[in-house]
Design a binder for these strands. Sequence first.
DNA 1: GGCCGTCAAGACGAT
DNA 2: ATCGTCTTGACGGCC
Length: 300
Amino acid sequence: MNLRYLGYACINTSLEKTTNKTFRLKNLNYDKYYETVSYNLKSLEDIIRWNRENNINFFRIGSEVIPLASHKQFNFDWENDFKKEMNFLKKLADETNMRFTMHPGQYTVLNSQRMEVVKTAVDEIEYHARFLDKIHPDKGKIVIHTGGVYGDKEKAKKDFIKNFELLSPLAKKMLILENDDKSFDVFDVLEISEKINIPVVFDILHHICNTPCQKPYQNLEEIIEKVVKTWKGDIPVFHLSSRKSNKGCPHTDYIRKTDFRKFISILKKIPVHSQYDIMVEAKMKEKAVIELMKNEQFFN
DNA sequence: GGCCGTCAAGACGAT
DNA sequence: ATCGTCTTGACGGCC
């Protein structure tokens, strides 16, 4: 497999723009909402243009692009209020060949034991789906983690599979499942993926953190080949980051070249005739991507 | 203008 | 039982 796009998440540090400007619940009112969403959508536009100038075609849009959109106290009709802006962004995204993903936060727990938490998770995912559908129809993907274990991982997986059915057809089509650093490893998410037919996002650092045998690279090609099959011909997304220390998973400012090269060379060996995209998770965001793009030999 | 406690929200492991 | 951490870190009251 060959590398196609490298992307970054939510913030452009060169432009000092974010799609994640938000406000406190107590400040929720029409003016604040209108002002903040306008800013976020304008930032997204500026970031897309910047990406085009810099040959970056992959971007994760911040979940707070419409702040508090799924909150029960939020009653504004953002889809209507920002129709014009969203249509414009759709056109711009098409013209510039951007690929977008979104990634709801850790509070989105689809397999929770508490029904009200499941409901807010569904609402949150549906909001992401509607947003992405407006500017990136048939292409947008929503990355989530499996959720909590609650002392019984097998049951927790079944609950995820069961609650997946609560989503709309649109959201189901967009959802992709990422292995996490503590609870649900790549084997768990592959198992879930097989049952409900959604693609797996493989995060190499989470895999390393979540591989107790200290041999995370063992059988890695075999694992990744299975992951790629879950995409059913669509171009897979991988997550890449470097860890700051040996403990936990905090990210570095830039990706270590050795981490990048090691990962790329493994993917190179996967015997599937396909390209793939990498979401780079590093504090210096687009600057980390630009650094990696200097390794031209890895692009085809 | 910079600092830092807090923020809509959940789960988990360390203490 | 409580705290810190995970992360897309950002807000905003206080100095």
